[in-house]
Amino acid sequence: MGTVAPIRMSTDTPDVMLTLAQWFSPAFPIGAFSFSHGLESLVETDEIRAAEDVEAWLNSVLNYGAGRNDVILMAASFRASSTEEIKEVDALARALSPSKERLLETEVQGEAFIRTINEVWGSDLPPLCYPVAIGASARTCGMPLHETACMYLHALTSSLVSAAIRIVPLGQTEGQSIVRTLAPLCDQLGSTYIDESLEAIGSSSFIGDIASMTHEDQYSRMFRS
């Protein structure tokens, strides 16, 4: 298998901040708006009814669920020395999905992310699931891992808060308060977990996993997960 394309720190690319703002903008076409990560199921069962519930749920997702693991997977993908190694990280990331819809969530977003990166940045990355796609793209496009990880967690938080605004429902301002409250956590987790190896992968968000399973049978659904 080929090696990873050399890091392209060309002078004609916009700076890091603007590139990452573009990648993690809701306008970047990965379809994040169609996934709720099990939130819709927790709303249906009345476990989430207000802003404080959404914040507590996001705390668990970030600290003990996909947030933590995604950063570790992203870092492993970023550091991979060959396409073969990236594909191994990708296989692990997919295999770790606890349900059909969580697998769909990471595959659909990752493949759309890679498609856009390949078209716009001229890279030649294979289809990858979302955190692995971000790690490989950051490496290929010369983005720093730490900032990429923090921006990713922040985007995940924002996207799930947007879902909450639609279905809990929450007010826009309440939603933005949650994002602001959780921003330091995104920064802290992004800093902590980029240095971990794949050995540190692990979660304990049992209720969230179960919610993503029971969502499959939910009668009325706005979201694909």
Binding site: D53, S60, A91, A95, S203, S204, F206, I207, G208
Partner: peptide, 26 residues
């Protein structure tokens, strides 16, 4: 040869307190 399933559970520190959290194990 294809990895088709992986699961990793990790519990550290105050396990009882952690499992009491609403969105961990309720």
């Amino acid at each position: 040869g294809e990895l088709v399933f992986a699961d990793a559970t990790r519990l550290t520190g105050d396990v009882a307190g952690h499992l009491d959290e609403r969105f961990i194990a309720g």
